[in-house]
Design a binder for these strands. Structure first.
Lengths: 240, 240
DNA sequence: AAATATCGGTTGTAAATATAACAAAAGGTG
DNA sequence: CACCTTTTGTTATATTTACAACCGATATTT
């Protein structure tokens, strides 16, 4: 990994201009102007680094102080268990942030690593400095804190929600739990889902094939209708 | 729910003294002095309210702006699905905080409600004001932000970790995933768990009885040893 | 249009799980 | 200690799931 840019220093303006659109649209900086972003990133000790494919961005048990924003490329978060089994937790794409959990709570020295999936550009920011208000005229600092809290709140909500689905005992219950949420979110008994069958099965931690069987049964039972990725909940009665 | 105390006003000192030990030891204010806490809570528009048993502290789809700290008593977080099925997500006891997710991201107008399990005293704090630095000489404000970020990071870590266990397909894999984490956390292949069998089964979303069967099998197979709540992992080989 | 790949649905079978019912062990109380 | 309650372990059985293998539909490539 090679640092190629530091905010607050004399740098190539081109590189910055290239990546500014991603920064501007990221959840951390949404609504801020370029000038404000520059000011904030100077405040946060922002640096941009390039990471080659399959190189580690951080490693399990590293002491992490910075969170990252993927400017280009993508990376994956991996977990290693006691026996060295590696499993992929998630992919982090362009515009998404990562590492905020470990940067906010360094004691969670962790079994989790971040690896570049391809050649990637990463913007690193020091979280300690986000929490610590600077004395400068960095008036958007509190907006930044607000944004970070918002990002973490959304993540916690998403995780809680997923646990709710996955904790159900049968595939049918898992599906209905997920569908119920979609109905409540969309405000309609008809909704589209952003998953392929395989992705939905992975999300709910069930076998794709078994899930397809269950979906068909539910349609036969008159509980749901579906066509491709569009679903409809047909029952006002508790189907369980 | 009845407000009985507001920080920054002339209030009964007794009530404050009664609950100060809980506040001081809560994760939000850990390390702060009583004077600092008073200053911060004035800053945050802190109020103390009493809530009777089985009364709602907040209701699904309320617009939540405050997070809470349980000073005495306890409450439960409930979720209602589309069909009105109510399930209990968690219990929140003395010294614990709740509602921070919704207060940080009000758009998550939610299917989740908080209900008093018994007569309870709750300290409410405005999260918007946590994120927004006050102009006062409230020097511990950034410590507070830091603490809040830390709390949310720990929660996200805990949730991610639980998803990792629950997402495994078989009971044995779920158990081993959990045990592996305990080994990594404790740094030893021997560890104690804070769950009864029923609680562990609920945590891993499996049937208690089936889990007991699996635990016995694993002992027979020479993968683990256990006695009451003390477990030992016996294998350096990947048991799966 | 033929070849290829991807995706969704189906089937049969082996494996795993939930469930109920019960027994044994542990803990608490008068 | 005797009694009761709670927790943990065991067994048998019905249900549910995973898995592999296959087919057909759809989309993509050449």
């Amino acid at each position: 990994m090679k640092k190629i840019f530091s905010f607050g220093e004399n740098n190539s303006v081109e590189l910055l201009q290239e990546h500014m659109p991603v920064i501007k649209s990221s959840p951390l900086f949404i609504g801020a102007s370029e000038k404000e972003i520059n000011s904030m990133l100077t405040c946060l000790g922002g640096t941009i680094a390039k990471c080659d494919k399959d190189k580690y961005i951080f490693h399990a048990n590293d002491n992490i102080t910075d969170m990252g924003l993927v400017l280009s490329g993508s990376l994956r978060l991996e977990r290693n268990d006691y026996w060295g089994n590696r499993s992929i937790l998630s992919y982090v794409g362009r515009g998404e942030i990562f590492g905020e959990v470990f940067a906010c709570e360094p004691l969670l020295s962790t079994s989790i690593s971040a690896v570049a999936n391809e050649e990637s550009m990463i913007l690193f920011m020091n979280v300690q400095r986000i929490a610590t208000m600077c004395g400068n005229n960095c008036i958007y600092h509190s907006q930044l804190i607000h944004n970070l809290l918002s990002v973490m709140a959304k993540k916690a909500y998403m995780l809680t929600s997923k646990i709710n689905h996955v904790s159900k005992r049968t595939t049918r219950e898992k599906l209905l739990s997920y569908f119920s949420e979609q109905v409540l979110l969309s405000g309609s008994t008809e909704f589209s889902i952003p998953f392929s069958r395989q992705e939905l099965a992975d999300f709910l931690s069930v076998n794709r094939s078994a899930m397809c069987v269950e979906l068909s049964k539910m349609q036969t039972d008159g509980i749901i209708n579906f066509n491709k990725n569009r679903f409809e909940l047909l029952t006002d009665e508790n189907p369980m």
